[in-house]
Amino acid sequence: MDIRLLKANEIECRIGTFKEGKGISLLLYKDARVDMRILDEVFGFDGWEREHQLIDGKLFCTVKVWSEKRNCWISKQDVGTESNTEKEKGQVSDSFKRACFNLGIGRELYTSPFIWIPASMGYSKYEKFEVKEIGYNDDREINMLVIVDSKGKECFRFGDKTKQVKQVKREVTETMVKALYKIANDKGYSDDMVEKASKRDYKNNVIDISMKDYMTLKAKLEGLEAKKVGA
């Protein structure tokens, strides 16, 4: 069964939590119409069936698909939960969507990153969001996601390296090394002490010291007691 991955326009965003002054978390989901469309595409109009039954007061949905390879029907079942609006209709739709998850339709949504939009962006709890772009890796996991607001403004981006801010590697500069000499000289120590510790050739203006070692040496020099005059 070749269940395709969901397209961006088949995924909807729902506010998971809204924290005043902090931000909004979003959840990704699919609706029942998407499930029906994909079932038709993969198995054909007459290649799948659904039925609902009440078990111990809970509504279950069973989705059956025809397997050409095994020449038989394959069934997946799950239970639904009530919606906040229409109780019975919500259970019917939810149980169907859950059963389709068991078949593999939209299961990639479980790999979604945590979507957090900070309060500084100024959105209310009534804002509408939508998925503009989505990408997957070979394991059918989400590795790129772009979400926009109701005006089309980008408010969340995940996994697109070309858009991510590059982290600048901190390097030890000439000015920073000169500061080490000053600390040593002010306390009465010679340049040799700094040059030996930092593997620095003063004449050739070469600096060969990591940021970690630089910070260690700086702390060591600052911790030294000043030499007595004539010592």
Rank of each mutant, 00 (worst) to 15 (best):
D192Y: 06
K227Y: 06
R37E: 14
S198C: 12
C155P: 03
R157P: 00
V79T: 07
V34G: 02
V146M: 04
E20F: 08
D149T: 05
D208W: 11
K64L: 05
K87A: 14
C13Y: 06
R4K: 14
K76S: 14
L39V: 04
T162C: 04
E86I: 08
F156N: 00
K64N: 09
K87S: 15
D191C: 02
G104H: 07
T216L: 15
I117P: 01
G223H: 09
N71Y: 10
W48I: 02
E108V: 04
V229D: 11
T85G: 13
A179H: 12
S120I: 09
G188H: 01
M193C: 05
I3F: 05
G90R: 00
G106I: 01
L221F: 11
I3N: 04
S25T: 15
Y110S: 10
S120L: 12
E88P: 11
G152P: 06
Y29N: 13
D46M: 09
V42F: 06
S190V: 05
K151N: 12
V206M: 09
D208N: 15
E88C: 10
G104E: 03
S112A: 11
Y214L: 03
T162S: 11
N84W: 13
I15N: 06
V146F: 05
D94S: 07
S67I: 06
K227F: 07
E171W: 05
S75V: 08
E86G: 09
F18Q: 04
V229G: 04
V194Y: 02
P113F: 03
K151W: 03
G44M: 07
W116K: 05
S25H: 10
A184K: 01
A226K: 15
L39D: 01
T111H: 02
S95F: 01
D139L: 11
G44N: 12
R107C: 08
K212T: 15
A219I: 13
V146S: 00
V42Y: 04
K196P: 00
D192W: 05
D35F: 04
K58T: 11
R50V: 11
K76L: 14
E154N: 08
F96D: 00
K203F: 10
R157S: 11
L103F: 05
D31V: 12
V172F: 03
A179T: 13
G47W: 03
R70F: 11
R98I: 06
R70K: 12
F158D: 01
M121C: 09
V131E: 00
D40V: 09
A119T: 07
K97S: 06
T62H: 00
G16R: 05
T173W: 13
L39I: 04
C100M: 06
K187P: 01
I24F: 13
R37L: 15
T81I: 14
G47S: 08
S198H: 00
R14Y: 15
L54H: 02
T85R: 09
F129M: 02
G21L: 14
D213V: 07
V63E: 00
D40E: 15
L217C: 12
F18E: 05
E88Y: 13
K87P: 14
G104W: 02
K166D: 10
E154V: 10
Y29L: 09
I209K: 02
K97T: 07
V146D: 01
R107V: 08
V92S: 10
C61T: 03
M144T: 05
F101N: 10
S120N: 12
G223Q: 09
Q53S: 13
